[in-house]
Design a protein around this nucleic acid. Structure first.
Length: 298
DNA sequence: TGAATTTGACCTTG
DNA sequence: CAAGGTCAAATTCA
């Protein structure tokens, strides 16, 4: 492993941020252009703007990818120690006394979604609920109903403070069971721009409400890329629906206007979602990749 | 009556 | 020691 100096790392990080901000500005321009095509006196076309956005994000990703494997492991807390290695159970206890024996989760294989509903087309079994400090709502803990079949998927659901009913769902470990329905992927892989997609929130809350009303509970889901299975038989009709709205191709926003956030760390989710920045890194699925955005993103 | 949920105890981590 | 994650007995539901 090559070692990247911390200064160099932060310099790259800043550079990436600048490119992202630039991309965001162009996206706003494009959005304006699309909303008011008549008053368009801009010398640049939509295609040009779209290309600039794509370029901006590509550059950012190149910047990030070039030092992906060089992030100091100590930063960010991707404690890979969540595995079995070094897992020490202090006392061998009777089966009945195993309650509470666990490793606190801080695993890389987690991702987060925000949704007005808890539904996600998977079958879950609730196994716990806790009141969380400084939170108005309790956190619920679910595991896959097919646990007995070896599926270790878990999720935590917590309602977010606010007027709207929004649930933040944190998933841990992908489903390995075949029986459950697949949640539809939010972003299609068919889009070349989507290779490493970063989308900026454009929908208003009223738009969301509208969508929520006419659609039956549609979960959003962001695959953390290890899930090849997301490119499934659903892909064909998914592609069709995506093509209906050209804006989707650029922003990656579901037509429902939900706001997905993929992140390995819950803390980062909040900062990212607060600023309306949502990201999907298909090639950068491993946890380290997001350390670039660990602090003071904006 | 079996499956799902609730809830308090227990345990780990920071 | 406080906070958070999990277990399992008790309870509820279909």
């Amino acid at each position: 492993m090559g070692s990247l100096s911390l200064d160099n790392f932060h310099a790259r990080k800043r550079k990436a941020m600048v490119k992202l901000v630039k991309g965001k500005e162009i996206a706003v321009q494009l959005q304006t252009l699309l909303h008011e095509p008549v008053r368009n006196s801009e010398p640049v076309s939509e295609q040009q703007l779209a290309f600039q956005i794509y370029r901006s994000f590509s550059d950012t990703l190149s910047e990030l990818s070039s030092c992906t494997t060089q992030i100091p492991a100590s930063e960010g807390g991707a404690s890979a120690c969540s595995g079995d290695t070094g897992k020490k159970k202090k006392k061998k206890r009777g089966v009945k006394d195993l309650r509470g024996c666990y490793k606190r989760r801080r695993t890389s294989d987690s991702w987060v979604t925000l949704s007005p509903t808890m539904e996600d087309n998977y079958a879950w079994r609730k196994y716990g609920q806790k009141t969380i400090l400084n939170s108005d709502y309790p956190r619920s803990y679910f595991r896959c109903t097919h646990k007995q079949d070896g599926c270790k998927a878990l999720k935590q659901v917590q309602r977010i403070k606010g007027d709207e009913i929004i649930y933040q769902t944190t998933y841990f470990i992908h489903h390995t069971c075949k029986e459950t329905l697949r949640a539809r992927p939010l972003v299609m892989d068919s889009d070349p721009i989507d290779q490493n997609l970063i989308s900026f929130q454009t929908s208003t809350t009223s738009e969301q409400d509208q969508h929520c009303n006419h659609s039956s509970k549609k979960p959003l889901s962001i695959s953390s890329v290890k899930s090849e299975e997301c490119v499934s038989e659903d892909a064909s009709h998914e592609a069709n629906s995506t093509l209906e709205d050209p804006w989707n191709d650029i922003t990656g926003l579901d037509t429902l206007g939900y706001k997905p956030v993929w992140t390995p760390f819950q803390d980062e989710v909040e900062s990212a979602s607060l600023h309306g920045v949502h990201m999907k890194f298909d090639q950068l699925c491993d946890i380290q990749n997001f350390h670039y955005f660990d602090d003071h993103m904006y």
